[in-house]
């Protein structure tokens, strides 16, 4: 396979999980809830998808379980930050910790192994697209989740900008008290945003484990959940922007994989592996100029905490 084809396919494979998570993170941040714990939700999604596929033999059931796991984790985050008014960054780190713990304990429980699961059925190809002339081969080599991701991108964009619910969600993130006075149930919409971000994060994680590979390995998420949060900032808090920024990161990821496969490369492999992280840091540094997020992002609006 030529370099260009490899890079395009790898970009999609590496970028879509980040993109899915970023679309969800964008929605959540637009309503005012920072969700840095998406790394944990992706981990849980990845593990649960593999476990589900192993237990039922059907990878789609695994994906469904992954979405539910993501929703469950984000519900905890939502309760702690929205209802109790807890600090959003700290709660997120707690979730990442919990996810790591659950994945490890779960690996031992379900697969009786440490570090890596058994191989399971996966959905890494979309066979019914193969007969299409010329591009059919390439289209078929991508998981159906890739196509679902584009649909979801359209859905999130439409939800946020073209529906009354979406406009109210944006209001919650800009000035919750004003929205509340206008009759919007701020906390309910914020909760909705967080749950959707959890679902999409779980789906993104499931794609990494069941959509492009066929097993779960501890640490396989490797910071992509955090890259998704960065993508939201880079994309100026719009779903399409976040999606595009994620695919950029996917490209850097694909690039480092490609460079590692060249024998006798002049650049040491550790520096190559650094590329996605350094690149995202540099890009963010130089595009940060007038980037302002939703005005009330990160601030709780809870009766219990007295910030209402």
């Amino acid at each position: 396979m030529g370099v260009i084809e490899y890079l395009v396919m790898a970009t999609l494979r590496m970028g879509i999980p980040v993109a899915l998570t970023a679309a969800g993170a964008c929605l959540s941040e637009r309503t005012g809830v920072l969700n840095i714990g998406l790394e944990g939700m992706m981990s849980m999604g990845a593990f649960v998808a593999v476990a589900g596929s192993y237990l039922t033999g059907n990878p789609w059931i695994g994906v469904l379980f992954a979405i539910l796991a993501g929703v469950a984790m984000s519900a905890i985050h939502g309760f702690v930050t929205i209802v109790c008014g807890g600090a959003m960054g700290v709660s997120a780190q707690a979730l990442v910790l919990l996810a790591t713990g659950f994945c490890s304990v779960g690996l031992q429980l379900v697969f009786n192994s440490i570090g890596v699961s058994a191989q399971v059925n996966n959905i890494s190809t979309t066979e019914f697209l193969r007969p299409i002339p010329v591009i059919g081969e390439y289209l078929a080599d991508l998981s159906p989740i890739v196509y679902i991701a584009f649909l979801i991108l359209f859905g999130v964009h439409y939800l946020l900008y073209k529906t009354p619910v979406g406009l109210r969600m944006q209001a919650c993130g800009e000035h919750p008290r004003a929205a509340d006075t206008a009759g919007v149930n701020v906390n309910r919409l914020r909760f909705l945003g967080v749950l959707i971000s959890g679902a999409l994060g779980g789906l993104g994680g499931a794609f990494l484990s069941v959509g492009s590979m066929n097993l779960f390995q501890e640490g396989m998420i490797a910071g992509r959940g955090y890259l998704a949060v960065g993508a939201v900032i880079m994309g100026r808090w719009t779903p399409v922007g976040a999606f595009a920024a994620s695919l950029c990161f996917g490209f850097f990821d694909a690039l480092q994989l490609y460079l590692q496969s060249i024998p006798n490369a002049p650049i040491p492999s550790q520096f190559v592996q650094m590329i996605p992280y350094v690149a995202s840091l540099l890009v963010l540094t130089f595009t940060m100029k007038n980037a302002t997020g939703p005005a009330a992002s990160g601030k709780s609006y809870s009766t219990i905490a007295g910030t209402k």
Partner: peptide, 26 residues
Amino acid sequence: GMSNQFVSIVQGLIIVFICSENFIRW
């Protein structure tokens, strides 16, 4: 035979509960 990552779970739970301190107070 309990995985030693169980300690991570307890750690995470402690952080979650402290974050919800407002709820406990309420």
